[in-house]
Design a protein around this nucleic acid. Structure first.
Length: 929
RNA sequence: GCCCGGAUGGUGGAAUUGGUAGACACGCUGGACUUAAAAUCCAGUGGCCAUUGCGGCUGUGCGGGUUCAAGUCCCGCUCCGGGUACCA
């Protein structure tokens, strides 16, 4: 019987579905294991061959865990809100829900063909009201909590109100937008509106005037992680800075916990590093510089308190409130002009002019609290309003930006740190600031002569004692802007009364997305929801017009999978305490600063309010590498319709043109298919190689339509079957590494599957399996494979698993082994990788239940041990011959045998044997000279 | 600029703790079967030299070092990929 993958795969996919083979429930008798894939955004293009890579790996691991006795939760769903469906809706008028549903259906079809072990009963879609009800619910909780820095957790806003009533802001240490100070009497005397405004300053989900990334092209604001190099991540449209009243999440309150939490989770170092950088913790000092002839005090943040003696000027961010307070009347005009200009510059322009310093003098002078020296106060946009205090002390000798600024405006430069082994130098001669992380202090009063770290410590101590400032920690991580001026997202469960936001009662959830006539802003410039009819509460209060961003729905989906049909809670306590957290999370590294920060934040908040039992959501995380495209080229002679083959093109003046990889095999062009590919090439002529072939060039590029290098998994499955696709995706290389897809190698794994099949079933005579006793050699082959494959799966080294299978099958083939006691365990080993074939073989062997519940075989040492060891014998490190010795031979015995070996004389002749190294079981090295 | 990763045959990659570099595949070459092709099977395949013999030399981006032994460890570079960027 032939290996008929088409029939086999169809049959078992239907069987698994009918039998609900992959449905799981809480089972306290078994240990749990939760394997999660980053759920996809269902795009119109469908899946290409790069998408399932991580899904296949996680599926193999899930099946492996199940075979090892775990109750495995392995769900899948869709990140269904997103810009592409909405952009499409704007162009065509088609409701994004329809497009999205169509795309989901297509995704599902493609996924089903690959034979995944998902429990589809637990599917979630972020755009489903039953799902986003809990996204809205979480938002309401965030609105009603604040972050208490002393308790290091979120607490109810009602507690805060009680405190304000009794003591005002006294003894409050809470995360907030602005430090406020008022008494209980003052609080109690405020109007409802004033009180609500104050509370927004503390809420974890808050509405405030903030500097946002405004993208005019998309008509919406974006979060920091959605902007890269001054343009939007989606679409690449310019982004500008603008103050707008927007919803934000107080993620910054969790900065320290998000940082510390990284220590206890099993993520790759590179990913942890990205998150650490994004959080950007820096320890330093806040210092106060009084402004001369004024009450104004400039508070600055510095990590290098030791360099305070080298301060020669101060700089304020253009947006800083202090600018107005310090500016001298005769400089007012220039300063105002500068601020107006700075505002007009987009983020992008600011970046492209990195080297060019701009700024303006305010006319004011600040007093250095350590030296009492007076230094001029400038305004420049190289100082950011959002970081630290929006004001800096400039030390041009040891900071490259301060140095560039000093040179541009001819300000003095004072050296205070000298590198070890050098002498102080004339700063007028410098071309750049000098690195000051190591060295000794000069021109620095009481810290002269000290090393840098000691000087930092001593200065901090000094300023604390003198009350000039305090030691402080700053984070780069900002609050997440949570409003989008778009249609296709979760509506906020918020209404406005007297211009103040209030949340809906939880019993009114979900607040469903209303219908609109167009997916565009209103004539008044309101977001699309402004077009919705009757968009108000029963009492007539207007509802929020913004919608939530993409990351809202993806921040807690892993919790919803635990209990997807619960209409009373996000997740029941029972389900949460059983499934706890994600044991293995597989996905791309592109979510390092977005989703993976937000969901950790979201989870920590839910943990604080007692909704979930784990403070970190994803215990182990593996990033699969990108599958790149492998493009093919033909070479057209310039100005003709004639194409020259790759190896002959050097003699001609040619233009490389992308050609569809699907009409090229092993870099040989199918000329007829090429002529039919595009009418332009109908009458093309060719200059061929000697063998009459047209050879294409190739390059590794991004897999995309425009490069004609997209390979569709459906086509691969049609030709080779899902099991071959699964195996080949793994065989390509290490999971975490990026690598190009090249269909050419796929024959190898397909052949392997046919060979494996052949061990069980003969082409003509049917089943070959016998009940004969296995030989020692056969047992060794099997148990080596068990040991290697078990170990490699645990290490996520799936490519080497496939090699191990090939070696095992090749050897069993050589041994002509058709014995049940060898082949049955082999079928189980194979089942996570090629589940359809394994299931078919399993049933042919007479089993009535599915192979997914078979026991994973154990490697036994007694079959692995060899009686003898073949030692490579080296002379001066170079292998010269091999020597077979009994496994239990002693060092001396081995040494003697090696020296006595016939091959040894040649290398020892005329030389002295100086040393013999014998590593039992490994190697012999003889040092001669 | 700063931080993190990587570089091994024509190609994808293997070598898990320093111990036979190139496993396993693809491709290529030669052969068997066939009217022919496909499929299948067998042999060879890093480079150079010798192939009238065993074989020898060389080789993991480049230059140094440690070691009996280095793809693997250390120092200094080059190139490629990713992150981040006036973050004080």
């Amino acid at each position: 019987m032939e290996y008929n993958f088409k029939e086999i795969e169809k049959k078992w996919q239907k069987h698994w579905k009918d039998q609900k083979t992959y449905q799981v429930d809480v089972d306290k008798e078994k240990p749990k294991y939760y394997v999660l894939d980053m759920f996809p955004y269902p795009s119109g293009a469908g899946l290409h061959v790069g998408h399932p890579l991580g899904y296949i790996a996680s599926d193999i691991f899930s099946r492996f865990k199940r075979l090892n006795g775990f109750n495995v939760l392995h769900p899948m769903g869709y990140d269904a809100y997103g810009l592409p469906a909405e952009q499409y809706a704007i162009q065509t008028g088609q409701h994004p829900a329809i497009t999205t549903e169509k795309n989901i259906k297509r995704y599902r079809e493609q996924l089903d063909k690959i034979g995944f072990s998902y429990d589809w009963n637990r599917e979630v879609k972020t755009c489903d009201p039953e799902y986003y009800k809990w996204t809205q619910w979480a938002f309401i909780q965030m609105f009603h909590h604040y972050y208490d820095n002393k308790a290091e957790k979120a607490l109810p806003v009602n507690d805060l109100i009680d405190h304000f009533k009794a003591k005002g802001t006294k003894d409050i240490d809470a995360a907030c937008s602005d430090e406020l100070s008022f008494t209980a009497d003052e609080w109690n005397g405020k109007t409802e509106k004033e009180q609500q405004e104050i509370l927004l300053n503390y809420r974890i989900a808050y509405l405030a005037d903030t500097m946002v990334n405004w993208c005019p092209e998309l008509g919406t604001v974006l979060a920091n992680d959605e902007v890269k190099e001054g343009v939007s991540l989606r679409g690449g449209h310019p982004v500008e800075q603008k103050v707008m009243r927007q919803w934000s999440l107080r993620v910054s309150a969790y900065a320290e916990r998000l940082l510390i939490g990284l220590d206890n989770i099993d993520w790759s170092d590179s990913l942890k590093e990205i998150q650490k950088n994004w959080i950007g913790r820096s320890e330093g000092a806040e210092m106060i510089f009084p402004v001369k002839n004024s009450d104004v005090e400039m508070k600055i943040f510095t990590t290098r308190a030791d360099t305070v003696f080298g301060v020669t000027f101060m700089v304020l961010a253009p947006e800083s409130e202090l600018v107005n307070q310090v500016v001298h009347s005769d400089h007012k005009k220039e300063v105002e002009q500068y601020i107006a200009d700075a505002k007009k510059r987009t983020e992008r322009e600011r970046m492209s002019e990195v080297k060019k310093m701009t700024g303006v003098f305010t006319g004011a002078y600040a007093v250095n609290p350590l030296t009492n020296e007076e230094v001029p106060v400038w305004v420049s946009d190289y100082v950011l309003a959002g970081y630290g205090t929006g004001a800096i002390m400039a030390v041009p000798a040891h900071d490259s930006r301060d140095f560039a600024f000093a040179r541009t405006f001819d300000l003095p430069v004072t050296q205070v740190v000298v590198p070890h082994g050098e002498e102080p130098a004339d700063t007028d001669q410098w071309d750049d600031s000098i690195d000051s992380k190591e060295g000794y202090m000069v021109n620095s009063g009481f810290i002269n002569g000290l090393d840098v770290p000691e000087a930092i410590h001593k200065t901090k101590e000094y300023i604390r004692k003198k009350g000039i400032g305090e030691v402080n920690v700053n984070y780069r991580l900002r609050d997440a802007i949570f409003s989008r001026q778009r249609y296709w997202g979760e509506p906020f469960p918020v209404y406005y009364k007297d211009d103040m936001p209030y949340t809906l009662d939880v019993s009114n959830l979900p607040l469903e997305l209303p219908e609109v006539d167009k997916y565009l802003p209103t004539e008044q410039g309101e977001p699309p929801l402004g077009r919705a009819k009757n968009w108000k509460t029963e009492e007539g209060y207007p509802l929020e017009l913004n919608t939530m961003p993409g990351f809202a729905g993806s921040s807690a989906y892993y919790l919803r999978y635990m209990d997807p049909h619960n209409n009373k809670q996000l997740v029941s306590q029972e389900a949460n305490e059983y499934w706890k957290d994600v044991d293995l999370y597989i996905g791309g590294t592109e979510h390092a600063t977005g989703h993976l920060i937000y969901s950790r934040f979201w989870n920590k908040f839910l943990y604080d309010i007692g909704e979930v039992c784990q403070s970190e959501p994803f215990r182990k995380l593996v990033n699969q590498g990108m599958i790149q495209g492998r493009s093919n080229f033909v070479y057209r002679l310039k100005g003709t319709n004639k194409f020259v083959s790759y190896n002959l093109k050097k003699d001609y003046d040619t233009t490389p043109i992308h050609v569809d990889v699907n009409i090229v095999q092993n870099d040989i062009l199918d000329i007829e298919a090429f002529k039919n590919w595009n009418p332009e090439y109908k009458d093309a002529e060719f200059i061929l190689e000697d063998g009459g072939k047209y050879v294409c060039g190739w390059a590794v590029e991004k897999m995309s339509k425009s490069m004609f290098n997209v390979v569709n998994p459906d086509d691969i499955i049609e030709q080779y079957g899902a099991d071959t696709l699964r195996l080949y995706e793994m065989f390509l290389g290490p999971l975490e590494q990026s690598k190009p897809w090249d269909t050419n190698g796929i024959d190898g794994v397909h052949k392997f599957l046919r060979k494996a099949w052949r061990l069980f079933i003969d082409r003509d005579n049917g089943i070959l399996v016998t009940d004969k006793e296995p030989s020692k050699d056969e047992l060794k082959v099997l148990h080596r494979a068990i040991a290697k494959i078990s170990d490699d799966i645990e290490r996520f080294s799936f490519n080497t698993c496939v090699s191990a299978f090939m070696i095992c099958v090749n050897e069993l083939n050589d041994l002509k082994c058709h014995k049940r006691s060898i082949l049955e365990p082999l079928a189980i080993l194979l089942s996570p990788f090629a589940p359809h074939m394994a299931e078919e073989l399993w049933h042919m062997l007479g089993h009535k239940t599915s192979i997914v519940d078979a026991p994973w075989p154990k490697a036994e040492d007694k079959y692995l041990k060899d009686d003898s060891v073949v030692y490579p014998v080296s002379f001066n490190g170079k292998m010269r011959f091999k020597l077979e010795m009994p496994a239990d031979a002693g060092k001396e015995e081995i040494e003697k045998a090696a020296l006595a070996h016939e091959g040894a004389a040649k290398w020892t002749e005329g030389k002295t044997v100086r040393k013999v190294i014998v590593v039992p079981g490994k190697i012999v090295n003889i040092v001669v000279g």
